[in-house]
């Protein structure tokens, strides 16, 4: 099956899958992608064709994603969104550096107007044209509804398993759903410790160690509010609306249901956090952000002012190996203050 890669949570996997293509929400690996020299399908020659190296001011996640997309030989298409300005600019680099079919999806930052919601829906229509050009089939409402039910069931299953999984397994289950689609059977292993939340943008592959580090330090992530975690999963579909108008329900669930720091205003993110932090009796927050990610960085101080919980700031520059030890020490110290 032809594979379509993306990373933004506002790209509905169901929509791609319903076109008969395989959606794959990639979790880039900064270290691996930097090691690759030159993509075989690059149309350019010379220095410009090599993966993007460290650039002053460039978010390490954006860099890792672009390098991964450039070097992904199994993907037949890539979907980038406008949710992050550097990703939007990165799209221009992507289209210049390799031949992979690429699509830039406009995801509005405003969300309170009907016009913004309609724009998102229209963009799904445009995405459909792109997918059809790549060999996909425009789905019937019934076909879409069927795929939506599969994903909905998988998400319900993952959510239900939260209490029985370690934080890492839970995060990996969510990531696996995005990468590989619905699957059955997850191992159960429950950890204990001081309940913490992790909040921020998307994780890269090596970052999943943070869940282990927390557990080894006497804590447990009970709320994964990263973009690759629970916060980036859309809520359950309304079954009645799903059958009446599946595409609109899909748009509502994704555009209306996923809260992000990039939204304007982003008050709903805090409302969601307020509810989830209380419901899970969280005692401390790990705020994980990329250096040069203005969207999340600007929320750090606001979050500290907003919550009574202790907040630990972990900034990530993309060099996971070097940073791991620093995280370990900081997380241990943080948990000592909470116990």
């Amino acid at each position: 099956m032809k594979r379509i890669i993306y990373s933004c949570p506002y790209v509905p996997a169901e929509w791609i899958a319903a076109h008969g293509l395989q959606p794959s929400r990639i979790i880039p690996d900064p270290a691996a992608s930097s090691a690759v020299r030159r993509p075989a399908d690059c149309r350019k020659t010379g220095a410009g064709a090599s993966p993007i190296g460290p650039v002053e001011g460039l978010c390490p996640y954006v860099r890792a994603f672009l390098n991964e997309a450039i070097n992904d030989k199994r993907a037949c298409g890539v979907v980038v969104t406008t949710v992050c300005d550097q990703m939007r600019r990165g799209f221009d680099v992507l289209t210049r550096q390799c031949n992979i079919a690429s699509f830039l999806m406009n995801v509005p930052r405003t969300w309170q107007t009907f016009a913004a919601q309609k724009l998102y829906l229209d963009e799904l229509g445009r995405l459909s044209l792109f997918l059809v050009r790549l060999g996909g089939n425009s789905p019937t409402p019934d076909a879409l509804a069927e795929v939506m039910l599969q994903y909905d069931a998988a998400r319900r299953s993952i959510r239900a398993s939260r209490a029985y999984l370690s934080a890492r397994q839970y995060a990996e289950a969510i990531a696996a759903l995005g990468q590989e689609g619905p699957a059955q059977g997850r191992k159960s292993e429950m950890g204990r410790g001081v309940p913490l939340a992790i909040i921020g943008g998307p994780l890269t592959r090596g970052d999943f160690d943070i869940f282990d580090i927390v557990e080894q330090s006497g804590g447990k992530i009970v709320l994964d509010a990263t973009e690759t975690g629970e916060r980036g999963m859309c809520g359950p579909f309304d079954r009645r609306r799903l059958h009446e108008d599946p595409l609109t329900e899909l748009a509502n669930a994704y555009f209306g249901g996923i809260q992000d720091a990039s939204r304007r205003p982003n008050s709903e993110l805090y409302r969601w956090l307020g509810h989830e932090l209380a419901a899970r009796a969280v005692r401390g927050i790990i705020f994980r952000r990329y250096v040069w990610c203005d969207t999340w960085h600007a929320e750090l101080q606001r979050l500290k002012e907003w919550t009574d919980l202790s907040v630990l700031d972990i900034d990530v520059a993309g060099d996971t190996d070097t940073e791991r030890r620093r995280w370990q020490n900081r997380i241990r110290a943080f948990l000592e203050t909470l116990t």
Partner: peptide, 26 residues
């Protein structure tokens, strides 16, 4: 907001959060 710099958008959101309400247009 929308196709604008993230830094400005984030700073404006911070301003909004400080009690200076903003009318956002896309």
């Amino acid at each position: 907001v929308g196709a604008t710099c993230d830094d400005f958008s984030a700073i404006a959101q911070r301003l909004d959060g400080l009690g200076y309400p903003i009318l956002w247009w896309e």
